[in-house]
Amino acid sequence: MSAEPILTVNNLNVKFNLRGKVLHAIRDISLTVYEGESLAIVGESGSGKSVFTKTFMGLLDANGYIESGDIIYKGTNLAKIKKEKEFIKIRGKEIAMVLQDPMTSLNPLKTIGSQIAEAIKMHQGLKGDALKAATIEILKDVGITEPERRYKQYPHEFSGGMRQRVVIAIAVACRPKILICDEPTTALDVTIQAQILKLLKDLKKKFDLTTIYITHDLGVVANVADRIAVMYAGDIVEIGKSEEIFYDPKHPYTWALLSSLPQLGIKGEDLYSIKGTPPNLFQPIKGDAFAPRNPLALKIDFIKRPPYFSVSGTHKARTWLLDERAPRVEPPEHIKMLKAQGGSYNG
């Protein structure tokens, strides 16, 4: 992993107008994405993880807007772009996206080949036989057998996993620098899911991609992520290297997310579950957004928003528990188990 930043987000605030009310979806996020890394953004539905990455491509819904903050990509501030035209230069060519559901993200009336060719033609300006050859090449790259025959087929002739491969082919066909994968495997079977993740890893190496995964399932990202950012209520509450998040998490919300994984459940006992519901983002949030659901919350959690506390050079978390004045709190049993697993790793 090189340490060159490729995308820098500073104090981003995104809001939505909904039925006369204002929803504060992204609450002052700063994040640096480094070139060549694989970053996972993890959070529940409604945490703002998709909205956050949509701002990189100017894909916010019409009622959403960036209130303040910068998104710097190659010297351009994406947050300040107003015209669709300028975004077209970024979308696909610089930053591409793979969406969750391969059933809906392909056009059912066009052949697989023509849908991939369309992207290549637009971004690389190829024509005729060269275009077809490039398309077949990319089909091979994403692991589709008999690409010449498959080229002429329609999406309905493909299985879910194959379709997702096609969607990925379209995304990488434009040779983007950053590939955003929004829940790329959620709609797929477990065995296919593992294969698609492996494919994404291989493509990342082959095309020198920087990848950003968005998912609600922490279990999936252990395999693919170099770094993990945990989002809650429009904010990154903890970020660190994959090992740091799994073996030495610090934020109570990360603890809760990890503890509720069925992989860690013990049969016959209740699985850990997070009480309550995420906060209402129509209302201003006071203190730590997770405090009302956090059995370990301190008094100050309800009053003042915690700043980031550094755990290591690469690991920081927004929780008062890390303040030196805070009482020492033992992480839950499940987290200790994970720590033991990572035995050889000292965080």
């Binding site: 593992a194 399932d217 922490l218 279990g219 999936v220 799994f246």
Partner: peptide
């Protein structure tokens, strides 16, 4: 094959 595909919350093992 199914068992091998279960994602584990353990980056080193994964």
């Amino acid at each position: 094959a199914l068992l091998s595909a279960i994602p584990q919350p353990d980056p080193i093992a994964e």
